[in-house]
């Protein structure tokens, strides 16, 4: 792991009018590190994710990001052009519902190739080869490259969404319940794939999930949120094996044992 963080978040607070989304969030994320944000619905974890990924403007606080040129920039002070460029090159966002992250009416190949074309690739053959390579890496059969994701199963769609995000070699990927809404067996496959890709590519990731097993398997560190506040944070196995806060103890003890 590198010695310099990729992201420095300080006092990040988001209010919707007078209603609290999340408050006073502080953390640093290092290259190759996976941070899980857990908590129940309404705990503010999705608000935090959307604010971190610059989809929402914070009420106060800042998030400094180390750009590819090594300069530190507050992501909320980037121009819209810079921010959008960042989000489709150096960042990824994996939505819970693949339809939110894919173009459902264009082929799988074009879904993967879009980011390449957006950054100026103009060679059809090379774009297609790259798309094929990525479909292989996410275990989508090569002969599905010209099919629309509408004809894909939920698990395939999610894997396609991941390929679409990773094709530009992002350094930071946000994931919102990436395995939510999938069958258990499909979840396992996806988790394994994610774990493998994150490891191979040295990605940093921020994963929102309410599933502690997902957090255990994917993340190095986790933050537990409740009522908009981070109530407990630390090494993932420390938080799960030795939960301190009443709410965390409740969460951990609520896992069904199989």
């Amino acid at each position: 792991m590198s010695d310099e963080p990729l992201l420095r978040v300080s006092n990040l607070t988001k209010y919707y009018g007078s209603r609290l989304g999340c408050a006073d969030v502080n953390f640093e994320l290092y290259p190759g590190e996976v941070l899980a944000i857990v908590g129940e619905s309404g705990s503010g974890k999705t608000t935090l994710l959307n604010t971190l990924s610059a989809n929402l403007e914070p009420t106060s606080g800042e998030a400094l990001y180390r750009m590819r040129d090594e300069s530190w920039r507050n992501i909320y002070e980037l121009s819209e052009a810079e921010r959008r460029f960042l989000t489709r090159t150096d960042w990824g966002f994996v939505h819970q519902n693949p339809a939110d992250g894919l173009r459902m009416t264009v082929s799988a190949g074009a879904n993967v190739g879009e980011r390449l074309m957006a950054v100026g690739d103009r060679h059809y053959g090379k774009i297609r080869d790259t798309a094929l390579d990525w479909l292989g890496r996410v275990e989508v059969a090569a002969d599905r490259i010209d099919d629309q994701p509408r004809s894909f199963s939920g698990g395939m769609r999610q894997r396609l969404q991941i390929a679409r995000n990773l094709v530009t070699g992002p350094r930071l990927v946000f994931m919102d319940e990436p395995t939510g809404g999938l069958d258990v067996s499909v979840q396992a496959r996806l988790l394994d794939l994610l774990r493998q890709l994150v490891g191979e590519l040295g990605l940093s990731a921020i994963v929102v999930t309410h599933d502690l097993a997902v957090a255990r398997l994917l993340s190095h560190r986790m933050m537990v949120m409740k009522g908009g506040h981070v109530i407990e944070a630390g090494l993932t196995d420390r938080v799960l094996d030795d939960p301190r806060e009443p709410y965390t103890q409740l969460l951990v003890s609520s896992i069904l044992q199989v």
């Binding site: 630390g234 090494l235 196995d237 420390r238 094996d241 030795d242 301190r244």
Partner: peptide, 9 residues
């Protein structure tokens, strides 16, 4: 053992 490994605080 778990404290030594950091699983327990």
């Amino acid at each position: 053992l778990k404290m030594v490994y950091g699983n327990y605080g």
